[in-house]
Design a protein around this nucleic acid. Structure first.
Length: 487
RNA sequence: GCUCCGGUAGUAUAGUCUGGCUAAGUAUUCCGGCCUUUCGAGCCGGAGACCCGGGUUCGAAUCCCGGCCGGAGCACCA
């Protein structure tokens, strides 16, 4: 953290446009900003940057979605601002800046201005007196100009090598009838552009450290001209690179496209790396937190592997996730020669016996009993010949057909199974089980039966289906719906 | 095209500013072994990297130059 000691109190902010949901990339800005503020006993602000009702139109639903994601991440904010409530503040500062000679109202057509700017020449509007500029400014406010007819420009250096920095636009007119704002409707016609509102707000709100993506590096250079006009000091900045995760798009336009085309049904589709999707899959906020902190704020781009995130998450959930049997794509297993009834007790967590057990009753009829096992295990069974049902007994395979395996009881001893190198498989008694579908990360669905004791699972619980993977319970009413997290 | 920025193992990261203390540390992944009534966890071991080429220097991942590759910006978007 650069120069943290220079400031009485560190203040950081997260400033999203509420036109989209938050994703793993957003988490970088949020967590770094939040953590740095808290580490220095400072405060963390949330500021909605909703000043464009035309091309990046905010949507009401996203204000709350952002708040919820932030809370979920554990990054509570000390103050909240919404830029569409602050238009009068921007107007005051625009007027002041014009008075200071640091800005002017430009009525040139865009192409005309660009041509002049590229030639490093001043446009005629720049040469107007402060008074004339102020008259034009009032004209913007009172409706004398239509959309696109006038813009406030901040004076910079016309000879700056980067043409993007030359006299950048600060406020423009949006037709309030055509493009009403979702919060304030058609009340305002003059709206600040990003660099103006952000620059003014960062100063007014006492932001000391800005942590944001490197796409804002040139914006800093732009804003510094304005800060100089006002006589303000620019905050410390950290610009980090893009964060990507293999296989999942974090690009807004691509995700929106997928939503529009119906490819994704919702913002928390398991294929997406939105915070909502990760949450639904049972990725803990703390896992994302550790990951982001470890990745840090370097300017390099980062392409994460999912396994990396999973490793953080597994460390968190493995100690507490209860274990259950889930037989996917079930196949019947009939075992004959069973000498007596069994009541199997299977620990809910192998490393923590105190958590308790689940019980299974096996009552053979004519010394025979039926079970359901996963089709995946068929090959294993055929290959090995001798297999153990976990925490129950060993059997010898007689025949393996497409939908049923015939077998003979071999013994109860676990030691014997070990000696015979018998593989251990999970199972449930036939005619029991809770219908269950697991939503996989690729949006496919695995159907099967979860053991009876899963009936009492509550939504949001993160459990492990043994030999299958960790899942988060999404819904459980007569039928279990779960989202796959990872192995 | 112009203006910037960056390139350490499969992935991520430490070290780079202030050259030697590091025959490059850590996490994860992968492989092998141990343990374990899960293909989970744990334990032990192993494999694996400084983009390339010059230069400065007694000595360079660290400094300089060139190349290559990647990224960002060049909106009356944020």
């Amino acid at each position: 953290m650069p120069n943290a000691k220079k400031y009485k109190k560190v203040v950081t902010r997260f400033s999203p446009n509420p036109d989209f949901v938050l994703h793993l990339g957003s988490a970088r800005a949020i967590i770094l900003s939040y953590d740095y503020a808290k580490k220095h006993n400072g405060s963390f602000l949330l500021r909605f940057e909703d000043t464009d009702s035309k091309t990046k139109k905010p949507k009401l639903e996203f204000y709350d979605a952002v708040r919820e994601d932030l809370k979920w991440l554990g990054c509570s904010w000390d103050m909240e601002f919404i830029q569409s409530d602050r238009l009068s503040t921007y107007y005051e500062h625009a007027q002041e800046l014009i008075k200071l000679g640091g800005a002017y109202v430009c009525t040139c057509e865009r192409e005309v201005f660009q041509k002049k700017s590229r030639a490093k020449q001043s446009c005629p509007c720049r040469l107007l007196s402060v008074n004339e500029s102020l008259i034009r400014w009032n004209h913007m406010l009172d409706g004398g100009y239509g959309e696109g007819e006038a813009v406030v420009r901040v004076k910079t250096d016309l000879k700056h090598p980067n043409p993007a920095l030359r006299d950048w636009p600060a406020l423009r007119i949006i037709d309030p009838k055509k493009y009403p704002h979702p919060r304030v409707g058609s009340k305002y016609r003059v709206w600040p552009l990003y660099n103006f509102s952000t620059g003014v707000d960062d100063h007014l709100m006492g932001i000391t450290h800005i942590i944001r993506g490197k796409e804002h590096i040139t914006n800093q250079a732009r804003q510094e001209y304005m800060y100089t006009h006002f006589g303000w000091d620019y905050p410390e900045t950290i610009h980090y690179g893009r964060l990507k995760i293999t296989g999942a798009s974090l690009s807004k336009s691509e995700i929106v496209k997928g939503m529009d085309s119906g490819l994704y049904k919702s913002w928390d589709d398991p294929r997406l790396a939105t915070l909502a999707a990760l949450k639904r899959r049972g990725i803990m906020a703390e896992a994302i937190h550790s990951l982001i902190i470890d990745v840090g704020p370097k300017p390099q781009d980062v392409v994460l592997a999912w396994k990396n995130l999973y490793a953080y998450n597994r460390k968190l959930i493995d100690p507490t996730a209860k274990r259950y049997f889930f037989v996917y794509d079930p196949v019947k297993l009939v075992v004959i020669g069973i000498p007596h009834e069994f009541e199997a007790e299977v620990p809910l967590h192998p490393d923590h016996p105190k958590v308790g057990v689940r019980k299974f009753e096996v009552k053979p009829v004519n010394r025979a009993a039926g079970f359901l096992i996963s089709r995946d295990d068929l090959k294993l069974i055929e290959d090995k010949g001798v297999v153990r049902l976990m925490d129950l007994f060993n059997f010898k395979v007689e025949t393996v057909e497409a939908d049923v395996v015939q077998a003979t009881f071999l013994g109860e001893s676990y030691e014997e199974a070990k000696k015979l190198c018998a593989p251990l498989i999970h199972w449930i008694p036939v005619d029991t089980g809770l219908s269950c579908e697991v939503f996989m990360p690729d949006a496919s669905i695995v159907n099967g039966l979860a053991e009876e004791s899963c009936r009492k699972l509550m939504p949001d619980e993160i459990i492990q289906f043994q030999r299958f993977g960790f899942v988060r319970v999404d819904a459980n009413n007569g039928k279990l719906a779960a989202y796959f997290a990872h192995r």
